[in-house]
Amino acid sequence: MKDDWEFDEKGNSIKLSFKELFGRSNLLWMLIKRDFISYYKQTVLGPLWILLQPLFSSLIFGLVFGKFGKFGSNGMPISQFYLSGFILWGFFAECITKTSSLFRDNMNLFGKVYFPRIIIPIGIIGSALIRLFLQLILLMIITIWLSFNGIEFKWGLQLLFLPISILMIAMLGLGFGLIVASATTRYRDLALIINFGLQLLLFSTTVIYPASSLPPPYSFIVELNPISVCIDMFRIGFGAPNNIKLSSILVSAFFLIVSPILGYTLFHKVEKNFIDTI
C-alpha cells in the first residue's frame, strides 16, 4: 500500500523527511504568510519598517564610521556601502536569531502536531529572503538615483555576485542557526549569547568598515570572517573592486560546507524528541 509508514526510536529517516517536505509546500507558504501578516498587524507604518530599519542603521553607522571616523568605503558611495552592508547583515542576523530560538518559539506547535520540522527554519529563511528582496529594490533605486548624479553604475556580469552572496549567507545563517537551536534545547545559555554575540560579531565584519582601513593583524581577522566575504561579494555586485583573498574564500567555503551539514545533523537528532526535554 502506498501510504504505509513505520517508525521507531530513531524517528524519521532523512530521506523520508525530505520526501514529506515536498508534499507540504503549502504549509511552508502559509507559515511565511502568517509571519508577514502577523508581524505588521497593528503597526502604523506596517511593512515600511522593513525599509526603515536598514536605512536608520546605515545612517547612524555611516555618520559615525564613514563620515567622522573616516574609515573609507572601498571606493563606493558611502550610502551604498553602508546600506548594502546592513541589508545583508540584517538578513543574516534575522536568520540566525529566529532559527536559534525556533524550538522555543514553536514549542506549542511541535508539541501538538506532527509535520516535517525542517519546514520551520526553511520558512524563516524564506520570509527573511522576502524582506531582503524588498530592501534590495530600495538599494537598486538608490543606485539608479546615484547614477543620475554622476556616479556610474555598470550593468554586467558582476551582478551575478548578488544571488551568490545571498545564497552563501543564507546557508551560513541556516547552518549556524540550526546548530545553536539544537544546542539550546539542552543549554539555554546559548540563547542568551546569540543576541550579544551578534553585536560583537558585527564589529568583526566589513559591514561597518572596509577591511583595508584596518592595520594588518586586525584586517586579516576581519577578512577571514565568512560573513565579510559574503558582504564583500555582495558589494562587488554594486561595483566595488574585487579584492577578496583566496585564503578568505577557502575559509568561508569550509564554513559554508560544514555548518549546514552539522546544523542539519544536529537538528535531525534533536527534533524527534526535544519536546520531552525542553
Binding site: 500500500m1 501510504d3 504505509d4 509508514w5 513505520e6 517508525f7 521507531d8 526510536e9 530513531k10 524517528g11 524519521n12 502568517r34 501578516i37 502577523s38 506549542n108 506547535l109 511541535f110 508539541g111 501538538k112 502536531v113 506532527y114 524527534k272 524528541n273 519536546i275 520531552d276
Partner: peptide
C-alpha cells in the same frame, strides 16, 4: 509522531491527523 518511543515500533497506513489540542497553530 510528536515524540519517538524509547523502544519499539509503530506501523500503519494512511494519513494520521491528530487533534491533541484545539486550534493548534491558530494565530
Amino acid at each position: 509522531r510528536i515524540t519517538t518511543p524509547t523502544h519499539g515500533k509503530i506501523k500503519g497506513h494512511g494519513r494520521v491527523a491528530s487533534l491533541l489540542e484545539v486550534g493548534t497553530g491558530f494565530h
